[in-house]
Design a protein around this nucleic acid. Sequence first.
DNA 1: CGAATGTTTGATAGGCTTCAAGTGGGGTGG
DNA 2: CCACCCCACTTGAAGCCTATCAAACATTCG
Lengths: 255, 255
Amino acid sequence: MPQPLPFVPAALLNVAALKASCAGCSMHQLCLPMGLDSDDISRLDSIIGKRRRLARDERLYQMDEPFRNLYAIRFGHFKTYQVNAGGEQQITGFQMAGELLGMDAISGDRHHCDAVALEDSEVCEIPFARLEELFGEVPTLLRHFHRIMSQEITREQNVMLLLGNMRAEQRFAVFLVNLSARYAARGYSASSFQLRMSREDIGNYLGLTIESISRLLSRFKKQGWISVDKRELTLLNPAMLKALAAGTEQCSPMA
Amino acid sequence: MPQPLPFVPAALLNVAALKASCAGCSMHQLCLPMGLDSDDISRLDSIIGKRRRLARDERLYQMDEPFRNLYAIRFGHFKTYQVNAGGEQQITGFQMAGELLGMDAISGDRHHCDAVALEDSEVCEIPFARLEELFGEVPTLLRHFHRIMSQEITREQNVMLLLGNMRAEQRFAVFLVNLSARYAARGYSASSFQLRMSREDIGNYLGLTIESISRLLSRFKKQGWISVDKRELTLLNPAMLKALAAGTEQCSPMA
DNA sequence: CGAATGTTTGATAGGCTTCAAGTGGGGTGG
DNA sequence: CCACCCCACTTGAAGCCTATCAAACATTCG
């Protein structure tokens, strides 16, 4: 089921030309065109390749595939994961509308992980070679691109902190609070949203098992901090969850 | 004690002008100027700020400090770490000569972690604003910079895999093999080197305790895979360590 | 309706942490 | 010069958090 695009006047969505451009995309305030004037946006538009729709579980790219494009998510959700020699996989992130996929492929000219749609989704193909050409003409774009890459670095550092130092309860609270903030930034409810990923995916991302995630959900529910029905989630006590995430509030045992 | 600079003809080192330039730096094949012709290297030289020496345990920058410069390590070693609200710290990386510090600060205009010298070290200050100007004139430099940032992203993804999926033994093997490869790339011995960081730092980085690191060192020594004397380390069975790191070889219990 | 998949819950086990004590080297001050 | 102390490290014992194993339950889809 495709995601609704909130906060975009219907008039804009009805104009095909605009709809197919960055200016008309509901995500342009969060995505690559952030901060560009309309002139520069149209320059960016001119290099954007075709849009690509993916069904749930469809793969956008695969590890070791040659790198040609970055991808901006128009709507939908993705996960990215690595597979090591032993066949174990580690999910390195969940991405949503307005976020950029593929930056880890720049250094080696081939993709370093797999990207898979968690639901029916659509991305903009951004040919990286042409983007590089554009950097010379649009310094604002270049600076914003650097910020995006840097942000990805800090995001991963935060995950390292999570995986290296936190107990299961805190990890899970961080995960929920993070999702909440990102939905809020997109104009969705901060307290009520749908988990697009399976319990197994969450566990893999957080360095825990599916059973642990299930138990955490049950415990948080029993404490009255959240309510869950399948993948429909509501944060009933965001303050407590934030305190848990920050480490202000103590961890209680899993039993 | 300052590190020796290997593989640089003494003639070069004796010319002060060259010594102070990227062209004369033993790390220019690994560092920012990689792949630049001599013309572009001198352009890069012209924007490089002052060199800065740091004593062991001295801090290069601190979290939340305003971001002005990237730093290229000329010699020595650093660690970078985050501190969360609860005061817990997580080391996000160990950096050595030829590597770049501070890229995580671009997105927020302030440093996202602390950087501390593990021994007497020297860095080149690279004013980021001037570097950005130079990007417009030297596309090769820009492309290499993107590769460096992307490489940092993939490095962190590998750490996420390590922290999320691996047992203590495998983590430690990955750590040793990684150090070995980086020293080899710098012309040092791949099998024999000094650990510049404390056991506690290693443990913090790998998501383990100092006691676990100590036990791992003892076990690896007992197995004949390494020899250790204080911080002097020799890999006696690199193949086994690589197999452990890859997950090909099974983990044995810690007892 | 039945098989397959995803999830929940319980019992047990194990790997690593925590707590504790001891070792050893380097530096300092007498 | 040497005794002392401090710090980093090592080693042992016990406990806990989470994984693993197992089974039941729910849901989806053919």
